[in-house]
Each structure stands twice: as C-alpha cells, then as structure tokens.
Design a protein around this nucleic acid. Sequence first.
RNA 1: GCUUCCUUAGCCAAGUUGGUAAGGCAAUUGACUGCAACUCAAUGACCAGUGGUUCGAAUCCGCUAGGAAGCUCCA
Length: 446
Amino acid sequence: MKEIKFYNTLTNKVELFKPIKEGEVSMYVCGPTVYNDPHIGNMRPVVFFDTFRKYLEYIGYKVKYVSNITDVDDKIINKAIEENVPETTITDRYIGEYKKCLELLNVAPQYSNPRVTDYMDSIIKYINNLVNIGAAYVVDGDVFFDVAKDEKYGELSKIEIDNLKSGARVEENSKKKNSLDFALWKKTDKGIKWESPWGEGRPGWHTECCVMIDSIFKDIIDIHGGGMDLRFPHHENEIAQAEMTHHNHLANYWIHNAMMNIKGEKMSKSLGNVILAKDAIKDYGSDLVRLTLINAPYRSIINFSDKTLADNQSILQKLSSCYKQLNLFANLHGLFDKLPKHSIKIEPFLDALSNDINISNGVTEMLELIKNSNMLLRQKVENFSEIVENFSTLSDICHILGLSFRPTKISEQNISLYKDYLSAKDAKDYELSDRLRNKLIEINIL
RNA sequence: GCUUCCUUAGCCAAGUUGGUAAGGCAAUUGACUGCAACUCAAUGACCAGUGGUUCGAAUCCGCUAGGAAGCUCCA
C-alpha cells in the first residue's frame, strides 16, 4: 500500500498515516445543520473529503465514510416556529436540498448519514453515563459537561483554559460552574423536545458525533474531519467527552479544511455576499465549482473570486478539449474496450496526493499529462499504446477528482460523420467540412 | 489579550526530512492551420527586510515590518 501522510491537527504535524486495521479506513466528517440552503462554503469539506475518500479507495483502501446530519438545533426550531410547521418539514426540505447538491457535485454516497433524531436514546444514555461518572452535572433540568474533570482539555485547539478568559467572547451563564463548560442537554419549553431523566428537553450539539461514532464504528476511528471552525469548541468538546467515556481521542487523525472567502471578504449574512451552492452550480457548472473547491491547499483559505474561477475554467477547458480528442482517438481505433487499468502513468498524480493531500499539485500533474497527450496526438506517427494509456490515466484522475469526464462510446453513425468531415476537408470542400464540424462540436465529439 | 499561520515573478500560486525555485493566467515571439478553435515551443523571481546556524537555506533559529484565521452562531 502506498505510503501517505497528512497534517494532523491534534499534533500540529504532518504524520505518516497508519490505519487501525490494515487496508481499511474509518472516517467521520461533520455534516450540516439543516436549517437552510447550503452555501458554497458548506460544500468545501464535502467535496474535499469526498476527493480524499476516492483517492484512498483508488490506492486500495476500503473506506467506511460516515457523515452526520444535525436535524435538532435552535435554528431549526426557530425556523419551524417562524413558518408555523413541524421541525421535520424544515429538516426534510433542507436535507433534500443538501443531497441534491451532493449529487450535482458528484459526491459518492456515504456509508451512512445518521440523523440526531434517530439516535436520541443513545444520546441520552451517553449523557447519563457522563453524569454518573461525575464528568457532567445537572442544574435545574440542564446538563453541563464539567471541563475541569478533563485534564487534557484544550489539547486539540491548543487553548489554555486560563488564557481564554480575557479577551475572548465568553458568554455569561450563571448556571455553569466554569464558563468553558458546555451544554449536553438543554431544558426547553418550545419546539421539539424529548423526555429524559432530567426532564423534557433536547441535546446539545457536541454529543451527537461521539454517540454516532460509538454506535456505527464501535471504537476509536482513524480520521475525523470537518471545517476549521469546528476545531474549537465542537471537536475539542467531542474529544473531552470521549476522554471521559472511553479514555481515548475519538479519532487518531483530525483533519480540518480552511474556510472560503468571497472576493477577498469573509462570507457572511451581514455582508450580503453568501453564495448558495445551488446558485453557484447553476451559474458555473458542477465541474467548475468542484474543481475550484478542491484545487487549492485544503489548509489555506480559498478566495472564491472571478479570477479563481477563470483560472480553474481554463484548466477545465484544457482538460475538456484534450479529453474529447483522446476519447475520439480510442473510439476511432477500436481501443475503447481495451483501456488499460491503473497505468503507472498515474503515479505522479498519486504521489502529489499522498503528500498532505496536495490536490493542487495533483492538478499540475494532470496538466502535464494533458500536455503530453496533446503532443502525442499531434505527432504524425501515432503512438497507440501511449495515447490509450494517457486516456485511461486521465479518466482515472477525473474519477478521483470527481469531475464528470469519463470514456464515452461513440456510435458508428457518428464515427462515420467524423470520417466524412475528414474527407470533406481533404477534398477542400470547406463548406461541407465546416457544416460537419459544427455538428460534431454540437454533439460534443470535437 | 491568547493560539495558530502567512509574506515566492504583473496576477493566482506549488515548494516532504535544507543542496541553488512546479504549474496556471496575462504578455511578447515563433511553429502548426483553408478559416476558427485547440495545441506545442521559447522568454521572466536577488523567494517581505534583517541578523544567525551551515560547506550550502525560500526551506531551521532570532528580530523588524505587514497581513490572515480561530477564541462556545458558523463548514
């Protein structure tokens, strides 16, 4: 198996990846809170981790990938009240929107997409255990995690508890023993609620991931991913709960992707520059959106600007034009069904990704392959085996990157159309050849 | 205030464990071409500044200047 390494936020170091079980990867990525349409930033972790997963599978790992859906939350409850409908109306609607985006962006279905509402019993049990072992305390129907009980608290985010008190936005909550303590269960009198040993209420946000990981994976997992903004407090709090419950880190490797800016500014409602994923896909197309989101170091901020889009569009244009020619070549020469699998030519691409999931460098390798293909296609003496190998390799790369290019069988009829075009051109009948050329462009063969 | 990080050609931007700088856009020139489109080739960097460690540093350490992100709504 190929050696891969990537940055572990838990240790702040690039580390060699060693899975718990040889040849298998267990991976959990925090999913959306379904209270409105996903925006373009929500899609970054989705496509990034999907690309990573496809890469892992390509090099031979069996990947068990779980991504949750948070369908219990104040924002959902408020929206339900606002629209005067049950919470499920809101969550069903936005889960639908979310899944639509994933499909459009060519994201492979995951092993499981657990919802909080399906795990309520387990969540209550989990919290109850924390109370019983003294890691959490009950105050008037609320349950809080007692951060003071976890000596390692701050390990992931490198936050020193003492430093957090000055300067940071620390909410006042007189019920808490310590301002860092976080709610595991909230007493509530409005919106959806569940019965619990502490009265009616709903769970806090941080417990669900711990419970889902326990339920689905049964043990510590390899990789836990999500956006950088989740590092603190969400993931820190997940670790704290796992430390108290199982005396482990919940995951051996923590991967966090950086955020996105819109034209150099942070995306926010108050700036009015939020771009919805579905709008971006409609305006720019799935391939361009996906490529723009992954063609950058995942730990750097992406500036979603006209310039960035144009740069990626130009890459896509090169890819498209070359890919069509390769596809045509393979069809013309009856090589379509004889494409080699896992050609060695993909190695530079795989090497780029094995080094801290550097998709940008992978794209550079793809461009090298395109350049080489263009050169081969132009040569008078056709090098069949190498061209077909390039075609196959480029197809594999597109698959890993999640771009929509794939080998397409061209009908006999269209092949003869192409041959007619060539003969018309040879005969210098440019009127006919131009007409045929336009037709071939129209049906996406040229 | 605390934590983490960044500063590479006009622009975007890559640079694992230190050995004399990927790629893309734009620009200029050339090749190919019935016309287009596409494509190929050639042409650019004293790596923010400044000290130090080293045979040798964009890459390690210090300082200066500028910038970013996070610090319980947020992917």
